[in-house]
């Protein structure tokens, strides 16, 4: 337990010392929020069903952070620690393998939560955002979304040979998904054909779930999202247990 805490704290420091990862998790989404907030404000529009740009951007950008930490942050860190032999060195100590991996997941989760918290605070104090959901409910949706994406991150980390490949694969998966799923900018602005493509992207279901819960929709309306994310989580865990390599 003591070593898990130490290791988590250490990994958190390492995360914050890595400028690129920290920027895209904590600063970039906030910058986007201020950018589009200052262009469009947060007045309700019919395009967004009576909500404002900032109202729908907060859950969408949260989805963006989840995908970034899951597909890039976690994957690259694990792949590079394996490639450099950091994981191998840790395996020679009595610390449990589960604790080594848990520390990574906890840190990614904390950083993702911080990213979301900054968005929510900015939304609340700068743009008087409308929040009509239930805080616990959105927290649950957030946890499910995070874990399901981290599970995918673990599969990727198990499959890629090097940190370099992890980075390329992560980018190839992440960037199109950010544009097409409604996480990077509102799906309402996308043409019909692209909306069809988006039904094949896992991130779409994170956006749907978080946007829905944010405006107070019920879980029953989002059973499809929950089923898809739940499946990702279970498959991800089972696959990584089989595939994960320490060296």
């Amino acid at each position: 337990m003591k070593s898990l805490l130490k290791m988590t704290w250490m990994e958190a420091k390492l995360f914050l010392r890595e400028p690129v990862g920290a920027f895209f998790t904590l600063a970039f989404p906030l910058m986007m929020l201020f950018l589009f907030g200052s262009i469009y404000g947060n007045s309700p529009t019919s395009m967004f069903n009576g909500y404002g740009t900032v109202d729908i951007s907060i859950p969408a950008y949260t989805a963006m952070i989840i995908a970034t930490t899951g597909l890039m942050g976690l994957t690259i860190t694990l792949a590079s620690n394996r490639e450099n032999g950091v994981l191998r060195r840790l395996r020679t100590t009595p610390v449990s393998p589960l604790a080594i991996l848990a520390a990574q997941v906890i840190v990614m989760f904390i950083m993702t939560s911080l990213g979301m918290l900054f968005l929510v605070l900015a939304g609340k104090f700068v743009y008087h955002v409308h929040f009509e959901g239930n805080a616990l409910s959105i927290a649950a949706g957030f946890v499910l979304s995070c874990l399901s994406f981290y599970a995918i991150g673990f599969i990727l980390a198990s499959l890629v040979p090097t940190a370099r490949t992890a980075q390329v694969v992560g980018m190839v998966l992440l960037y199109p998904m950010l544009f097409l799923s409604g996480a990077g900018f509102p799906r309402e602005l996308l043409p019909e054909t692209i909306k069809k493509i988006s039904t094949f992207l896992p991130l779409t279901y994170v956006v749907n779930l978080l946007r829905g819960l944010w405006i107070g929709e019920s879980w029953e309306q989002h059973l499809i999202s929950v089923a898809i994310l739940g499946t990702m989580l279970v498959v991800g865990i089972l696959a990584s247990v089989k595939l994960f390599r320490w060296e």
Partner: peptide, 15 residues
């Protein structure tokens, strides 16, 4: 109960 120095090893760059 063992202490190990590997011939080849690394720690995270920023540690």
């Amino acid at each position: 109960n063992t202490g190990i120095q590997l011939q080849q090893s690394n720690l995270p760059d920023r540690m």
